[in-house]
């Protein structure tokens, strides 16, 4: 059995069972390790990728679910001035250990795509990813900064 989908704009085929978590298919079979394993139950968001532009938790998403669809990982986002999220994250030096930050950036990018100028309440509701270093103050500031830049 195999699953063909678009990964960061390129077609890829996963040779394996449909029910393998997308996270591990991407990490182990396509060598993109920027998306992290944190909880395995879809709670922490370290594994967040975009599916057709929407943030999804991929440690609990079967690869079969993305057949024929477009998956974007942290490696697929631009890092130049065209990406205000990345710029804001660097300007405010957000990461500490950094492990959750790929997921945070993916969640933020998705939030800003549907809500270009989120309030603090919008952020509280949309950003449910977890950070044990508690970099939340800089994350919040970076989201607002990215909104201003966009």
């Amino acid at each position: 059995m195999s699953v063909t989908f678009s990964l960061n704009g390129k077609p890829v085929t996963f040779d394996g069972p449909d029910d393998v978590p997308l996270l591990w298919a991407v990490r182990e079979h396509f060598g993109l390790t920027g998306s992290k394993f944190g909880c395995g139950i879809g709670m922490c968001g370290a594994c967040t990728m975009h599916l057709d532009g929407e943030a999804v938790r991929t440690c609990v998403m079967a690869v079969g679910h993305v057949r024929g669809r477009a998956v974007t990982t942290i490696e697929g986002l631009p890092t130049d001035e065209t990406n205000p999220v990345h710029q804001a994250w660097n300007e405010l030096d957000v990461p500490q250990c950094g492990y959750c930050q790929s997921g945070m950036i993916m969640a933020t990018t998705s939030l800003l795509a549907r809500n270009p100028n989120p309030t603090d309440q919008d952020i509280d509701q949309a950003i449910t990813n977890l950070c044990r270093c508690a970099t939340y103050i800089r994350i919040r500031a970076a989201i607002h900064a990215a909104a201003r830049r966009a």
């Binding site: 986002l77 994250w89 957000v94 990461p95 930050q101 790929s102």
Partner: peptide, 11 residues
């Protein structure tokens, strides 16, 4: 920070 925001940092 750059490595930790573009997915390239190796943990």
């Amino acid at each position: 920070t750059a490595a930790k925001t573009n997915g390239s940092a190796i943990f």
